[in-house]
Write a protein that binds this DNA or RNA. Structure first.
Lengths: 415, 415
DNA sequence: CTGAAAGCGCTTACAG
DNA sequence: CTGAAAGCGCTTACAG
């Protein structure tokens, strides 16, 4: 292969020499082909082909002051320990047999909630000519990951509460940032308090002190800077769902199975419930709705067990005609408690969830729920980020995405 | 905020000035802290903190001749058209109601098959100090994506047949490459022919002409270069599964529901079936196994419909005591055909699949199947890639990962 | 339409 | 242990 360097990648200089032009022209052909004479362009392209030239993204990023990469930070778990993954077998032909009649062999480490988000963001980014770099916040070293990411990208979309606001502030520096609605999925991560208005107003996200990176320990800045954000209409979705339930449920009282008090998602959904039920009792834990329906509230924690236990306890005093759960997992727990209590769903009592997780499709009966537009969330986050990058000084935007109600068997016939 | 530049990100020079050291020392503190005196190190770290310094990854990549990024190329679909995503509503409070009693509202664009792969690769990459950049091959512009990716990463893992080998060769240039086992999921993508031995030998993957980038059109190089590869033990998994089935199935003939002839996965699984059934007839489409079991083969195409139709047609002549399908989707189709034909599963006939897709858990009866270690596939691909990057001249490696058999109700009681 | 030249922000031998 | 200097491979005004 005469004249072709085997070991080293060709550079603009190699291409320029081969095409007998300057490196400026090579660059122009690659970036703004219309600015170059057709004949020259073809010579250069031929040289590019021949040499198998691939532009070095680092050099591009450095010279052009943009990386062409967007970052996405999502919650995530660490890998299962190697010993769990590998078992003892590595050789071919050793096959493990697993009794999975209960379906429990599904990977517990899987976090499906954000897969769609990633897909949406990824597609939108490439469509706009950006690559997407995804990082799942590890329990260990989130700051490291953040920091690392911040230096690699032109902008960062972060799922709310993936990292502490403090970290966002100091790590990100001047990197454009978009906050993406949090998640209601209970995931051991605990702290679900954060940037959304706890009253369900879902106000703009605030990052305090984003103005100064000088003092990392002093009092938070009095004037918070507002970041762009994309959220999901928790409140409107729950309102619509509950209005539907009130129209179709059997006569009798309603039980609202709430989420944890410190979750903004839970707060938004609770507000939607109150919007729909109306009447007195707003703010308290029970009352009579505007249509005369009597209702009460039980406290869940977004987990299956929490939902199960709360409903089981409630059943000892009363049998509801509807259980409105703040999320799917607790609704699934409620379903189990009702079954154990001999309550027919949806005949005697209808049940609804919120989130649209896979399990909601496969429960018996299948769960009526509100699906969050995770794909769109990703797309919008990228769009917002791009806007912010294009105009760093623009006023901050907050998008509230509409949701879908998925009608399934758990809320009975659809009159 | 006196002395703090608001608009421009601080560089090593700013840090050096603040800490009263040279930029070389700043760099050293960040990369090899042990090589710097403790006092100096602390001064520099303080300056880094104060200025909110974030290293520029492009500059690092350029100077250090490595990007610290690994690429992963997976098959993928484009985003649904905007009109499909957005509907007419954007305002809050507009909620769509969707009748999902049949569970069909699941996102058809979703490709779950690779989500685990990505997770495994992502986690492994970060663990090793690399970031991961994922690109889903778009129908349009795969080459563009590939090319773009190649310039951004230190190495690339590509799912087999995501892009044509030709493209791999010319686009990737000198970027280290690892091939990851293909997929058997029928996905409209069609061409499933490729790098695995069609006889089930699953030999090393060959990329022809990887030696020269000079001639993009001439005859393929006579000596193919072998790329590293990670594969899944299709053959061993199917063999183990079938041995189990032979032990538990009701008396009667076996039907092997094969995959498309041009699929290497299908070939590997078919080979595993023949290993297990033994006896004569190897290579033909039926015969008598070594234990006297009579068997025949029907051709499927990895789709539900293909499996359904093939089995429905078969039922007109014979009722099998076991249907071994080459993948889950066709097994699910087979299940439906058997139900329509009034054949009791697993009482009269047992059924098995291959892949471990979600739907296999939720079918009635739940499907016994072989689960591919997708998470591990991602982890191993990254490990192999890192090894290759560390030693470009090393002989190529091929890993064959063991699989799990998931025993569920479709193959009856487990004696 | 094209070229010469500066510069993007780091890392890394090489001296000392 | 620390600093001066070269250089990584591009892009982008600025001239012409």
């Amino acid at each position: 292969m005469p004249g072709v360097p085997e070991s080293k990648s060709p550079t603009v200089y190699d291409v320029a020499r081969q095409a007998e032009v300057s490196i400026a022209t090579v660059s122009r052909v690659l970036r703004r082909p219309d600015k170059v004479a057709a004949a020259t362009r073809e010579r250069v392209m031929a040289a590019v082909q021949q040499l198998g030239y691939v532009p070095n993204a680092s050099a591009r990023g450095l010279a052009g002051r943009r990386t062409g990469v967007l970052g996405l930070l999502i919650p995530g778990h660490d890998l299962p320990a190697t010993s769990d993954r590998e078992d003892a077998r590595t050789a071919t032909g050793e096959v493990a047999f697993i009794d999975d009649r209960d379906g429990s062999a599904a990977d517990p480490y899987r976090n499906r909630y954000f897969e769609q988000l990633v897909r949406g963001a990824e597609a939108a980014a490439w469509r706009e000519g950006y690559a997407l770099m995804v990082a799942a916040g590890r329990d260990m070293g989130r700051e490291v990951v953040m920091h690392d990411l911040a230096g690699r990208v032109d902008g960062l979309a972060a799922v709310s509460r993936t990292v502490p606001d403090e970290l966002l502030r100091t790590s990100i520096g001047r990197t454009p940032l978009v906050l993406v609605a949090g998640h209601s999925t209970a995931d051991g991560d605990g702290a679900d308090g954060g940037s959304e208005g706890a009253d369900g107003t879902e106000g703009a996200a605030e990052i305090d002190g984003a103005d100064g990176a000088v003092d990392g320990v002093g009092p938070r800045g009095a004037v918070g800077t507002t970041a762009d954000a994309v959220r999901v209409d928790n409140r409107g979705g729950m309102r619509a769902l509950v209005e539907h339930v009130l129209a179709v449920k059997p006569p009798g009282p309603v039980l609202y199975l709430a989420g944890p008090p410190d979750s903004p998602d839970a707060a938004g959904r609770a507000a939607g419930f109150r919007d729909a039920i109306g009447g007195d009792g707003a703010g308290s834990d029970g009352g009579t709705g505007r249509d005369g329906t009597s209702w009460s509230e039980a406290l869940g924690d977004f987990t299956w067990q929490g939902g199960h236990d709360a409903v089981a306890a409630h059943l000892e005093q009363d049998t509801p005609a509807a259980v409105i759960a703040a999320n799917d997992q607790s609704a699934l727990g409620a379903l189990a408690a009702l079954r154990e209590g001999g309550v027919d769903v949806p005949g005697t009592c209808v049940v609804t969830g919120f989130d649209g997780i896979d399990e909601s499709r496969w429960s018996t009966p299948a769960l009526t729920t509100v699906r969050q537009p995770m794909l769109d969330l990703g797309v919008r986050a990228v769009e917002l980020l791009l806007r912010r990058i294009a105009d760093p000084g623009a006023p901050s935007t907050e998008l509230l995405l509409p949701v879908d109600v998925l009608l399934r068997h758990s809320c009975g016939p659809h009159r």
